[in-house]
Design a protein around this nucleic acid. Structure first.
Lengths: 183, 183
DNA sequence: ATTTGCCTATCTACTGATAGATTATTACGA
DNA sequence: TCGTAATAATCTATCAGTAGATAGGCAAAT
């Protein structure tokens, strides 16, 4: 695998556990077997690394979302697909969402990073908005979409805090049910 | 004001913005006008500071919650009180919940801290559970309570990320409506 | 006299970052 | 095909700054 990819993977793993400041160039160096100065060759400033991480994560996330929802026909199926993507991020990676974590620390992050996080969330909310039945007014859809994303992000965080994956399933299922009362 | 209190306030302000690693003994020293070694006198290890912060925050939070809900008679009133407490934490302190932020970074925190965070969330969920109408079965109440807390925590995070307080109000109002469909 | 609270001074470890040398790889013209 | 120039990727060595933490001293309060 390309060294930049290996660096990004190592960095994402660490950052999704401890946050932006929990990743150091020396950590990444020892993770990948190169020297910290060589890490700087690939990502001159830490900010560059952070931006690349958020970009890569967002891309992967929305790709997975398209994939998971490709055969979804109903709003319920689409929301279930969304939940599955969030769930696999939590369970398979044993970590919360990169943007969720960075979103929590956003006040202490370099500006370009906060922009990437912002984009991630607005796109996320838009996706849910479009997934909801258009029998609901757009303004209302937007609010429900915000609730769904907030709920999923919060559920990830709480599930990690309580070391209890089940609570994520309970919360996400409950929320989808509430968001689509008809089904 | 007592120096320990001033230290805790300064530390909370910083930690609720950038997370655990965004607070240093030297920061707190310059915030309060004493030397960093004197900060160690009050909180020998950083972990001690962290634990004290979570304890203090939890206490204050539940006090405010009792106060806000003291005259609440209906489930709707109680949930509205909860939302008000969360909202004032977000708006007045211009920061997200301390435990929400630390919960996101929990994998990188000393164990005693994670315990405090855990306690905060279980107590939080229990409070909502008790606030919900007992016409709903307990198991269901628990799931809705989890959803409400997850939604509020997520809403804080997203509102901060997007630098948009209104979205917190939209999400929280929508969620209370969904949690109490009858009202 | 003891405790409390703060000080100076210092330690080791780690942070992000840079300069400059060295090696490996690739591209290209003779 | 061979030699060479250029580029890419890594290295060693180092910097100034900051991290958490400790030892020991000094002064004021109890």
């Amino acid at each position: 695998m390309a060294i930049t990819t290996r660096l990004l993977e190592a960095a994402e793993k660490r950052m999704r556990r401890g946050g932006y400041n929990a990743v150091s160039f020396r950590d990444l160096a020892s993770d990948t077997g190169i020297k910290s100065s060589s890490v700087h060759y690939h990502f001159p400033k830490k900010e560059d690394l952070g931006v690349a991480l958020v970009e890569r994560y967002s891309e992967r996330f929305f790709d997975a979302l398209e994939e998971a929802a490709s055969s979804a026909r109903t709003p319920k199926d689409r929301l279930d697909a969304l939940v599955r993507v969030y769930r696999s991020a939590l369970v398979e990676d044993e970590a919360i969402c990169l943007c969720g974590l960075l979103g929590a620390e956003v006040a202490g992050l370099p500006y370009p990073l906060s922009q990437g996080i912002q984009t991630f969330f607005t796109a996320n909310i838009e996706w849910v908005e479009d997934a909801l039945p258009d029998t609901i007014k757009k303004a209302e859809r937007n609010k429900i979409a915000g609730m769904v994303i907030a709920g999923l992000q919060g559920a990830m965080m709480i599930a990690t805090s309580l070391a209890d994956t089940d609570i994520f399933d309970d919360i996400s299922a409950t929320m989808v049910k509430q968001a689509l009362p008809g089904d």
